[in-house]
């Protein structure tokens, strides 16, 4: 199984990023795929939490929505939506929040609300906030998984739906946001992490065969790189088999 795609490595890398997590608040789509892959590889005990009210779901196949019946049927507990957001998320019980984005800026702030389509045209409507603002605010830390392009990685957000690191280092504390915020952005080209001094996202890892220039060309701001840029380990046979099994189920 030596053939794999960068999209697969993105999901595998996102699953690996959960290796130290105990509990994960999971959004649908790429985050759900990655979190379920982690349960099948490095983190079989990972507690998956879905905002529909399911704590500790163990789905046998990838759910289409956060409310699929299997999420509740395989859960350790099912709670109401107000309880989920107030006691479990706001109460600081969840280690990792896993989010996607439509637009992301250099401080890992997220837009999922509207996009500006230029003069004379109405704003393009996106689904909106959902659970993301409070996931970004209240989870112990946040992982973001997103395909790398200048459409997604923008110089300026058209709208701030969820706060990553605000205007830079110290902004989360100033805003009273209690979690650490985004610690990694995992893409199909590599991994970006906030610089310790500025909280600006810098390129820390590239997937095998991807160049710094490719990552820069796909980023809407002048992307800085870490002093030493690492190379992501390719997917193992076990990781690939688990991922493909999940997608086929």
């Amino acid at each position: 199984m030596s053939d794999w795609t960068n999209d697969e490595l993105m999901t595998v890398s996102a699953a690996r990023a959960l290796s130290a997590a105990r509990t994960c608040f999971v959004g649908i789509g790429l985050p759900s795929t990655a979190a379920n892959l982690a349960r099948r590889t490095s983190r079989p005990d990972l507690v998956l939490i879905y905002e529909s009210g399911a704590l500790g779901s163990k789905p046998t196949r990838l759910p289409l929505s956060i409310g699929d019946g299997e999420l509740a049927e395989t859960a350790d507990a099912v709670v109401s939506v107000p309880e989920m957001f107030n006691y479990w998320l706001q109460g600081g019980r969840i280690d990792v929040g896993f989010l996607g984005a439509a637009q992301l800026d250099r401080h890992a702030n997220i837009n999922t609300t509207v996009v500006d389509r230029g003069p004379g045209r109405p704003e393009g409507r996106l689904p909106g906030a959902g659970g993301a603002p409070e996931i970004a605010a209240n989870c112990g830390e946040v992982l973001i998984v997103l395909r790398h392009s200048t459409r997604n990685f923008v110089d300026r957000l058209d709208f701030t739906t969820s706060v990553g690191h605000g205007a830079g280092n110290g902004d989360r504390r100033r805003l009273g946001l209690r979690g650490r915020g985004p610690v990694a952005v995992i893409t199909d080209l590599g991994i970006l992490r906030p610089a310790p001094d500025t909280a600006e996202l810098v390129l820390t890892d590239l997937h095998p065969g991807v160049t710094v220039e490719q990552a820069r060309a796909a980023t809407g701001w002048p992307l800085k790189t870490a002093d030493a840029v690492g190379v992501t380990a390719p997917p193992t046979d076990a990781e690939l088999a688990a991922l493909r099994g999940l997608k086929a189920a």
Binding site: P82, F85, Q90, P133, E134, A137, T160, T161, V163, L177
Partner: peptide, 25 residues
């Protein structure tokens, strides 16, 4: 939204939460 319903069910004019800070919402 969840807290707006909680306030409505509780007979209170509003609910309190940690949220919205720093967002354009």
């Amino acid at each position: 939204m969840a807290n707006r319903y909680v306030a409505g069910a509780s007979g209170l004019p509003f609910a309190v939460l940690r949220g919205y800070r720093g967002t354009d919402l």
